[in-house]
């Protein structure tokens, strides 16, 4: 499927609902295209069609998504590097609920149950509560080994929310920066830095050193003698 076909496909579907969260201006074709083709990772045509059909549907209501966003913020508050909205965590949860449908029921019923608890404890829905009251509702469901029998389901919902929130954050651009991951770029590996080796009381065996790559000669074409000894 090429871009034009894909756009046509989306236009025929329920465009506006699907990507609401990205704040995309749907009257601006350039922006639509940018939003749609954000995901490029070597997909096959079938895979792209599947992804686009998921993106064009909507599962959660606006109210549910606002609650998901709030919960995700409580699970991982913003810091100077990033927050769960920059990490597009709500978009991921919306996508996953459609892509992996066993998530739908526990997430939806968990949100409903949370609002019910808010209502019976404080006479209001969760979002309208002061943060201290919100914390009071989360405390009994946030520690899986300390949960009472009647809150087991709420606790497993919260566990799922925490997992999706954290995985969404740490697989995002800001989350990867926050973690400090240094890789996924062309470089040359020349072993563990010396000071790290020292800190761990480790060293490279002298007897192993001849086996290792001399990085300055890695572009010299390999040649061997007849016994397999590398000459270059």
């Amino acid at each position: 499927m090429n871009r034009r076909e894909s756009l046509k496909y989306l236009a025929a579907g329920s465009i506006a609902s699907g990507l609401l969260l990205s704040g995309c201006d749907w009257s601006n074709p350039e922006e639509v295209e940018k939003s749609l083709w954000k995901y490029k990772y070597g997909r096959t045509a079938d895979e792209a069609a599947h992804d686009n059909s998921i993106l064009a549907q909507r599962f959660f209501t606006t109210a549910e998504l606002v609650l998901i966003t709030k919960l995700a913020h409580l699970i991982l508050p913003p810091n100077e590097i990033g927050d769960i909205e920059k990490a597009e965590v709500p978009e991921l949860i919306e996508f996953m609920a459609k892509d992996y449908t066993p998530f739908q029921e526990p997430l939806r019923s968990g949100l409903t149950a949370l609002n019910k608890r808010a209502s019976s404890a404080f006479g209001s829905d969760f979002l309208s509560l002061k943060e201290t009251n919100q914390h009071e509702l989360l405390e009994p469901i946030a520690y899986p080994n300390e949960v009472t029998e009647e809150l087991k389901e709420q606790a497993s919902f919260f566990n799922l929310m925490r997992n999706l929130t954290l995985t969404g954050y740490y697989t995002s651009e800001v989350g990867i920066k926050d973690l400090g991951y240094q890789g996924n770029q062309p470089n040359v590996w020349n072993g563990v830095p010396d000071h790290v080796l020292q800190k761990h009381g480790m060293s490279y065996d002298e007897s192993w050193m001849p086996h290792f790559l001399d990085i300055s000669r890695r572009n010299d074409k390999a040649e061997w003698d007849e016994n397999g000894n590398l000459l270059t």
Binding site: K38, Y39, K40, Y41, G42, D51, I54, L55, E88, E91, L92, F95, M96, D99, Y100, T167, G168, T171, S172, E173, I176, N184, Q185, P186
Partner: peptide
């Protein structure tokens, strides 16, 4: 060399 966020399901 793609990043996880380049997939809508993060890989």
């Amino acid at each position: 060399l793609k990043w996880p966020y380049e997939s809508p399901r993060r890989g």
